[in-house]
Simulated assay, not measured.
Amino acid sequence: MTDLLGELRRTRILAILRGVPARHAPDLVRALQGAGIELFEVALSDSHGLPALRAIRAAFPALTLGAGTVVTPALARQAQEAGAAFLVTPHLAPDVNAFARAQGLGLLAGALTPTEIVAAHAQGSAAVKVFPAGSLGPDYFRQLRGPYPHLPLLAVGGVDASNLGAYLQAGAVGAGIGGALTRTDWSRPDWSALAHTAQELVARARH
């Protein structure tokens, strides 16, 4: 099993690819890798998800690649068959978490409240995906560190270069970043702009 927590602590950024056409997905990964991003999640919330996941896995057999927005065990199985090494949920989904444990897949379980966060960790989440982080801000993470100093938290939702540092300073082990890394016209992708954004994020993560 991938050491997800170790990789998150080392790289600090999980790139979330949502709405990326399969024909462009490997090129996006290549561009983001060139900027220093190593962890990738393909969201399965639209028709692009599974084809993009398959295309990336075929192009990068050794990549640390997960599937996101996994809300049912059936979708979890499809994700595993498409090449996902770890699963990410948007909310506490005990049946998906159990599937990940049974199949030896990595897990980043979604949660928001303290009760959900503790439950997600107990159900095998390598780091708990606190979503939507942007609605509560870095101070929420700072406050959670009081009673849960050793519980690894991943900030997801509303994180970009302007606030990434604040979440890390508040105690998050890393951040899942989607929109900032996929915002382009997919009929003619601007690879250099996407790579520049990724470079800026990687630089912020290292400070």
Rank of each mutant, 00 (worst) to 15 (best):
G6L: 08
V118I: 06
P147F: 14
R77D: 15
D185A: 03
Q143C: 10
P132S: 14
L181K: 09
A195G: 05
L154C: 06
L108A: 03
P147A: 11
R145H: 08
Q33S: 07
S135M: 10
P61D: 06
W186R: 09
R206Q: 13
L201Q: 06
W186V: 02
T197F: 02
G34Q: 09
L17F: 04
R101P: 01
V20M: 01
A58S: 15
G36R: 07
R30L: 12
N97H: 13
T89A: 07
G178L: 00
G146E: 11
S162L: 12
A122G: 12
F86L: 00
G68D: 12
R142T: 09
D95M: 07
R9G: 02
G178P: 00
A15Y: 15
W186C: 02
V42C: 01
D185G: 03
L164A: 08
R10C: 04
P189H: 08
I13H: 10
L17N: 07
S192K: 13
L107Q: 04
E7Y: 09
A15R: 06
P114G: 01
L44A: 00
A120K: 11
L50E: 13
Q143W: 11
D3L: 14
H150T: 11
V29W: 11
H150G: 03
L201G: 04
V88I: 11
D46C: 05
D160H: 15
G157D: 11
L108C: 04
P138F: 13
L151V: 02
T72F: 03
Q169F: 05
Q78H: 14
M1Q: 10
D185I: 01
G178E: 00
P132F: 13
P26F: 10
H150S: 12
F40W: 10
G176C: 07
S162K: 15
G146D: 12
L75Q: 15
T184K: 06
T113N: 07
G124N: 12
L75Y: 09
A119M: 06
A82I: 06
S187R: 15
A170R: 11
P61A: 10
P132M: 11
G171L: 13
L154Q: 13
R12C: 08
V202K: 10
W186I: 01
F131Q: 00
R18I: 04
L153F: 14
Q33Y: 08
Q33H: 07
L14M: 14
A166P: 00
H196I: 02
V173I: 10
L136I: 05
L32Y: 06
A203E: 15
R9C: 03
R188W: 05
G178C: 08
P114H: 06
Y148C: 07
A180W: 01
S192W: 04
L53A: 02
F141E: 03
T72D: 02
G36V: 06
V88T: 03
G165Q: 13
A166T: 04
I16R: 00
G49L: 07
Q143H: 15
A195V: 03
I56C: 08
L17W: 08
P189E: 14
H48E: 11
P149D: 13
F99K: 02
A25V: 01
T115V: 02
A126V: 01
A67Q: 03
L136N: 02
P149R: 10
A198L: 13
H196R: 09
A126N: 09
G124Q: 06
L28Q: 08
L14G: 05
S135T: 05
D139K: 11
P21R: 04
F86R: 00
